[in-house]
Every structure is written in structure tokens, then in C-alpha cells.
Design a protein around this nucleic acid. Structure first.
Length: 561
RNA sequence: UGCCCCUUGGUGUAACUGGCAACACGCCUGACUCUGGAUCAGGAGAGUCCUGGUUCGAUCCCAGGAGGGGCAACCA
């Protein structure tokens, strides 16, 4: 059912294997993917999703989808829906759909019991005082004036906090651990705060909301999670995680394992920064095809299989690391190559007139959808006529030695069509090439010459008579530098947004066969790249295609050298 | 100047847990080709951050050092 290939080894898999071997948890391997519904999922989340769901799958366990919705200020149902859609799109099925907000009662109970045993107290300092008394990484903090309230007093206060007797910020519940703890996280971490805000699921039922540290590990424990996977920046939080699940009395509690988050060159993978790109109008929305969000990648034409293959290929480790874009692009091409049909589209057209081809004549040529090495079959008819469009880049008046395409006096093959020879270059007053007058060889119909003569180049083309004008959006890297977040503290990452990250080609010409295909059809436009119909902006009178990724282009290297 | 984590070719990972460093991406050659795609064949590229130690033998164990990163939100 799952993949044929053996998953590659990593340190988390080894730990889980040990757990299984020793029966450490006494229950099936159970993981969870715990996003907060305050933004869209991105490629970094995909790594975590693949890890958590993949582990459960491989060890015959289960993986929950848990919405970590403990902050009523930022969360929204629209994000929940987007998250569910994206995880499902990636191809994973959660064992249970869970919400941290479903555990608020249980969490509150635990809070009371911590208070009763003197492990937690109500602090009435304001935010600044709490911060000051926490000390710094260099200096220990010191106990505040409310730290030694009696359990009875604390319990009374806590209940009144819950009852809504106090305004936001009046009190907080804190674990009573150690204000001088070398780990800052353990300096009496906050557990519950007052927030008179409407929760997107619970409405006004609560005015007491748990903080991440209080909610997360306990939610894991409640769900019977065995291994709780999270990213490196939560390493220090592991102490409070363990403290809480133990104080709460869970048997064989889950344990946290941290791994390095994905960092991808030429983009950012942080919900906060992605939100800024959206809000500041650098992109058109969360699903802008330039965004590394799953919604953006989907609209860009990337398949879920490619994303999963990519996630498998990058490995899992505890070393912060950046992944080159080439690794991602390889996964995308590798997947698309084997599954999408080839069609012809001229992105930047220049006209070719075949002077020896009858005006008004149109013939239908057979063209296979797939090359010989892709084990799929299918073909379509492509109309051919006296006037054609070819790619501006495929002609050079004064070509360099290694240029194999059309040039004055030179013969090339029109893919699935005929051999043509350029006889004349027509220019306008400005000296720009407006038309190429060529002759075709009727004997080469279909692309082979009976006399066995060879041509160096094969170019793609579209009939001017029957081709369809369309808009082609050429997407490129979102940023001009590999790591826009590390350009110095005084430089904002948005200054590196690539102004050429989208180029709109509004006079492209595509063969008519694509019109009848599905609204989200993917293609390889021969010789240029992989494309997908844009589901949002497509109109029959104005077709729109998005470039998913270019083809590998060795000519570009030759040219660049 | 505290606590914690990390350090293997350009990049990302691996190495049966002590036996003389492998895979993928990228790069370079060549072959093939009706996509300058794909595929195929070959190649270059690290002696595993440094210094000591243990050992017949260390990427793996120990000590010290250097470099990188995380932590001082009533965010997650």
C-alpha cells in the first residue's frame, strides 16, 4: 500500500524502532501533526506532515491531525479548513481530527490539581513585572510578591479567573518551578492567561486560555501520542513538557523529539513572514503560485507526489540546514516527466510564413502526447497552416556556433511537422524582426525526411490560423538571494523580493487541443517547461497557464558560458 | 557571559553502532534522441571542524578548543 522503496534511515526512525522493540509505550506508534490554525500550511509543514504520517504508516500506528488552537486572537475556521484540505491533498488520512480547544476542561482540571499540590500559583504581577523578575539569560530571576500564596488562595483566584471576574492581564497561572533555573523556559512558565475574546470554535465559553507549553504536551498525553515530533527551537521547551506530563500523572507519557525545520533557498518558510507577503501585497494571496504554501504550490502545478518525494529526499536530522532549490525542482520535474502530456505552446511568438504552402489550407498532424520513454499512450491532432508562430528565441539572424535552431538559410524540423528552411527575414522600420519567410519540404510530413537528411534542431510551433492566444505566467524565485532572512539585522527580508518573480506573457499561442482538458490540467509545453491551467483566473476567452518549473536547459548553460 | 543543541564533498543525508566514507541533488565528459527534455555510460569533488587521548584500528568513545544555532512573547 505505502511506498515500495524502503524509507531511508534517520535518527527518529531509529528511536521509534527501539520503542517498538522494547515495548516502551505499550501502545501503537502514535504521532500527530499539530498546526495552529492561524495561517496556511507551507512546504516546511509538508516535511513535518510526511514525517509524522509516514512514521505512523510505516509502523502500523496512527497519526492525528490536531489543531493547536489556544490563542483566540489569531485563529480562524478558514485556516482550519485550508489545513484539512492541504493535508488531505498531500495524500494523508488522519486517524482523528483533534482540537486543543476540546481539552480546555481537562486542562483546567489539571491546573486546579497543580494549584492544590502547590505546583502552580496565581501571579498578579503585570506583564512587565513578570518579564523583569524572570531575569535574563545571564542573570537569574527572582520570585515575585505573589509566589507564596497559599493553595487555598490560589484556588479561589483561579476559579474566579475562570468565572470571568478579572480583566485581561490581571492574573496569570504559573507553574511553581524555579525563577533561577538555567533554562529560561523553566522560570515559572505561564500556564493560563485571561483573554476575554471570542474563540472561533468555543465562542465565549472560556476567558481562560492555555499557553503553548501548558497545552501542547498535555494534549499529546491525552491523545496517547508516543513520540511528539517538533522542530529544534522547541528543544528548551522539552523540560516543561516532561515536567507537566509527569505532574499530571500520565503513565508512559509521550516524549518529544526535535528535528531541524526545512529551510529552502530563495524563499521564506515562516508563517509570520508569509503573512506579511500577503498583507503587504508582495503576492496576490496565500495561494499565489510564488508562495511556498501548499495552496501556492498546488496552484503552481506541483503535485502532492512531488512534494512527498522531495520530503523523503531531504532526510531528517538535528542539524539546521538549507536545501537548494535544485533539489526541490528535481523532485518536481522527476514526477511531472512521467505523468503529464506534452503539448506545444509558443510563449513569445514570432511569425513564420511558409511561402510554398497553400494559403487557407489547414491540415491535421498526428502528435503523440508522450515521448518514447514515457510508458503512457495517447495523441492528438495538431493543425498546421501557412502561417505559424515559433518562439522568438528559436531564431537568430547571426547565430553562434553551437546554436542549433533556425537561422537564415538554415533548415530545422517543426516538431511533428515538416522541415522548414528560412529564406528571408522581414523587419519593421525599427529594425525589429516581424516575420520569417520560409519554405517547407512537403516530403518531410510528420518530421522525417525520405532522403535521410538530418537537421540539427527541432523546434515547437503553433498554427497562426488555429492557435489560441493565451496568457502564460512565467514564475521564478520569489527572492533574489538564497537566504533573504539572513542579510543583516537592519535589512528587511521584503527588500529582496524578486521583481521578476512573475513575468506575464500575454500574447502566447497554444495549440487548440488544450481547450477541452480539465480545468486543472498539467502539461509539459515542449522544450520550455511544465505548466498548469490556472484554476482561479482561467477564462475560456483568455486562457491562463502557470509555469510550474522550467525544463532542464543545457543550452542555457552553453549560452551563458 | 548562563543553559541547551549542532559540526561528514558545492548542497542535503548515510555508514551493520570501532573495521580504512556511501547515496541523492548539483557539476563535468561522452553516447543516444523528432523536446538542447528523458535515458544510458563515465568523471571530478570530503579523508569526516581543530588538538590531544583510548584502541591493532575512530566519522563513531573520552577531554579540551573553535565555529554555527536556539532560549529572556500573557506567540506557537
Amino acid at each position: 500500500m505505502s511506498s515500495e522503496t524502503t524509507p531511508r534511515n534517520n535518527f527518529i526512525r531509529e528511536l521509534v524502532e527501539d520503542d517498538v522493540a522494547t515495548g516502551r509505550f505499550g501502545r501503537p506508534v502514535t504521532t500527530r501533526f499539530p498546526p495552529e490554525p492561524n495561517g496556511f500550511l507551507h512546504i516546511g509543514h509538508a516535511k513535518s506532515i510526511c514525517l509524522n504520517f509516514g512514521l505512523a504508516e510505516d509502523f502500523a500506528g496512527r497519526c492525528n491531525l490536531r489543531l493547536d488552537d489556544t490563542n483566540p486572537f489569531t485563529e480562524d475556521m478558514k485556516y482550519v479548513e485550508a489545513i484539512k484540505r492541504d493535508v488531505a491533498w498531500l495524500g494523508f488520512t488522519w486517524a482523528a481530527e483533534c482540537y486543543a480547544s476540546d481539552y480546555f476542561d481537562k486542562l483546567y482540571e489539571i491546573a486546579e490539581s497543580l494549584v492544590k499540590t502547590g505546583k502552580a500559583y496565581v501571579d498578579s504581577q503585570n506583564e512587565e513585572e513578570i518579564r523583569e523578575n524572570r531575569g535574563t539569560v545571564m542573570e537569574p530571576g527572582k520570585p515575585g510578591p505573589y509566589r507564596d500564596r497559599t493553595p487555598e488562595e490560589n484556588l479561589d483566584l483561579l476559579r474566579r479567573m475562570k468565572a470571568g471576574e478579572f480583566p485581561d492581564g490581571a492574573h496569570v497561572l504559573r507553574a511553581k518551578i524555579d525563577l533561577a533555573h538555567p533554562n529560561m523556559i523553566m522560570r515559572d512558565p505561564l500556564l493560563l492567561r485571561i483573554r476575554h475574546a471570542s474563540h472561533y470554535r468555543l465562542g465565549d465559553e472560556w476567558c481562560l486560555y492555555p499557553l503553548y507549553d501548558f497545552a501542547h504536551g498535555l494534549s499529546d498525553a491525552i491523545e496517547g501520542i508516543t513520540r511528539s515530533l517538533c522542530t529544534l527551537e522547541f528543544k528548551d521547551n522539552r523540560d516543561i513538557y516532561e515536567w507537566l506530563v509527569n505532574e499530571a500523572g500520565f503513565e508512559r507519557p509521550p516524549t518529544q523529539i526535535e528535528f531541524a525545520r526545512l529551510e529552502l533557498d530563495y524563499t521564506v518558510v515562516s508563517k509570520r513572514k508569509l503573512l506579511r507577503l500577503v498583507n503587504e501585497g508582495h503576492v496576490s494571496g496565500w495561494d499565489d503560485p510564488r508562495m511556498p504554501t501548499l495552496a501556492g504550490l498546488r496552484r503552481r502545478g506541483v503535485t502532492p507526489e512531488a512534494i512527498r518525494a522531495f520530503c523523503d529526499s531531504i532526510g531528517v536530522a538535528r542539524k539546521p540546514a538549507r536545501t537548494e532549490l535544485a533539489t526541490f525542482e528535481h523532485a518536481v520535474r522527476n514526477d511531472l516527466n512521467m505523468r503529464v502530456p506534452r503539448v506545444m505552446c509558443v510563449v513569445d511568438p514570432i511569425k513564420v510564413v511558409l511561402t510554398n504552402y497553400a494559403a487557407g489550407q489547414v491540415e491535421e498532424l498526428d502528435a503523440s502526447y508522450y515521448p518514447h520513454d514515457v510508458p503512457l499512450t495517447g495523441s492528438r491532432k495538431v493543425p498546421f497552416s501557412r502561417e505559424l508562430w515559433i518562439e522568438r528565441e528559436d531564431f537568430m539572424e547571426d547565430p553562434p556556433k553551437k546554436f542549433f535552431r533556425l537561422a537564415p538559410g538554415r533548415e530545422v524540423r517543426l516538431r511533428y511537422g515538416f522541415f522548414i528552411t528560412c529564406q528571408e527575414v522581414v523587419k519593421n522600420d525599427a529594425g525589429e524582426i516581424v516575420e520569417l519567410r520560409c519554405t517547407y519540404d512537403p516530403a518531410t510530413r510528420g518530421g522525417d525526411s525520405p532522403d535521410g537528411r538530418k537537421v540539427q534542431g527541432t523546434i515547437h510551433w503553433v498554427s497562426a490560423a488555429r492557435g489560441v492566444t493565451c496568457e502564460v505566467r512565467l514564475y521564478d524565485k520569489l527572492f533574489t538571494v538564497p537566504d533573504p532572512e539572513a542579510q543583516g539585522d537592519d535589512v528587511d527580508f521584503t527588500t529582496f523580493v524578486n521583481p521578476d518573480s512573475i513575468r506575464v506573457m500575454s500574447h502566447a499561442k497554444v495549440e487548440p487541443s488544450v481547450l477541452g482538458d480539465a480545468p486543472d490540467a498539467r502539461y509539459q509545453f515542449e522544450r520550455t517547461g511544465y505548466f498548469v491551467k490556472d484554476v482561479a483566473d482561467w477564462r475560456d476567452e483568455r486562457p491562463v497557464f502557470n509555469r510550474t518549473v522550467t525544463l532542464r536547459d543545457t543550452w542555457a548553460k552553453v549560452k551563458g558560458a
